[in-house]
């Protein structure tokens, strides 16, 4: 029945319907299409703006040297080569650096997220004295720029004494923890790593949203507090934990601040690429006896940067949902 009723209306031409609505339909249709076109161009422009540096670096990195100086070439290289990648890989010890970076980032992010999960749960579910104060402390670790304390952290670990305890056992000597990565692991275990306040916040937010009855049921069945935590709540929080891990991993990967301060002894990608330009210059000068131009050296910087972020792009490609949705599900609200 309804089909038959609707059918005649649909067959009428656009202009017929427009006439009946006294031009209103045309106006609305124009506005709708105009808006769509505008939206398309806006989004396209912004996407281009974001992707442009990456595409640009890529095109530079596959060029041969002569293409660099050819002003008629802006985007598409005329002579393709993978040589730049080979030289860069050799110069930044890519295999070793990649392995080190992956391993350290994984370790650090697991430590950080494990600690933050515990703390987040503690804040979400328990009532204790001075809770407000400690939570204010979490906010404080978010807003203290690490640079403010970097001076004293630096000296702190150079002459490490743990509130003056260590000299008591060590014949009055302080310990030099500079250059070893131990301090950073310790900091990661105690939620003081890169952006850890944010993870505590996200996890707390998530745990607050889990219905309390879940734990109560476990308690009634005789579960201890810790067992309830890891058998009932951890599986529940798995998606959020994974996305915190991803964030932590990815941010650690590109971090230079903490890496320079604590992890300088390891061959890390983020550290390797900061000196790549000079190193390439040296390599060409001493090994191949060729002087390099700035543009040429910059080409290697682009290549190295791409090689550094390539693994991240792959991770992002597969785990995109997890990244984006974590922020939505944990509902960042104050």
């Amino acid at each position: 029945m309804t089909k038959q009723l609707q059918q005649p209306g649909r067959q009428k031409s656009f202009w017929e319907r427009n006439r009946r609505s006294q031009g209103y339909l045309l106006k609305m249709e124009t506005r709708r299409i105009g808006y769509r076109v505008l939206r398309f161009f806006l989004l396209f422009a912004i996407c281009f703006l974001i992707l442009h540096p990456i595409l640009d670096k890529f095109s530079v990195s596959v060029m041969e040297e002569r293409d660099l100086y050819d002003s008629s070439i802006t985007i598409f290289p005329r002579h393709l080569t993978w040589e730049n990648y080979e030289i860069t890989a050799q110069q930044i010890y890519y295999g070793k650096a990649l392995f080190n970076t992956a391993w350290i980032c994984l370790l650090v992010s697991v430590l950080q997220v494990a600690a933050c999960t515990l703390v987040g749960y503690g804040f979400a579910r328990f009532e204790f004295r001075l809770k407000k104060l400690w939570f204010a402390a979490v906010v404080l670790i978010i807003i203290v720029p690490p640079q403010t304390i970097s001076t004293s952290l630096y000296l702190h670990f150079r002459y490490f004494d743990l509130f003056g305890l260590i000299p008591l056992f060590n014949a009055g000597e302080t310990v030099n923890l500079r250059g070893s990565s131990l301090p950073y692991y310790l900091m990661s275990m105690t939620c003081m790593g890169l952006k850890n306040g944010l993870y505590i916040f996200m996890l707390r937010q998530f745990f607050s949203g889990v219905p309390q009855s879940l734990e109560e049921a476990a308690y009634v069945d005789g579960c201890s507090v810790f067992r309830t935590f890891y058998q009932v709540l951890l599986p529940e929080a798995f998606p959020v934990i994974v996305s915190c891990l991803l964030f932590s991993f990815v941010w650690q990967w590109t971090d230079t601040f903490y890496s320079r301060l604590f992890l300088g002894g390891n061959t890390l990608l983020s550290m390797q690429i900061s000196g790549i330009a000079d190193r390439i210059g040296n390599y060409f000068a001493t090994q191949l006896k060729i002087a390099t131009t700035l543009g040429r050296r910059q080409q290697f910087v682009s290549t190295a940067t791409l090689m550094t972020i390539a693994p991240l792009l792959v991770i992002y490609l597969f785990a995109q949902r997890s990244f984006v949705e974590s922020i939505s599900t944990s509902g960042m609200k104050m």
């Binding site: 515990l118 703390v119 749960y121 503690g122 328990f126 009532e127 204790f128 105690t190 507090v225």
Partner: peptide, 22 residues
Amino acid sequence: EIYGYLFIAPFIIGFLVFLIQP
């Protein structure tokens, strides 16, 4: 209350040693 403190203990230690002291 004790459990609560146990859970946030890592944070408290880190906060005092690696933030407040520096």
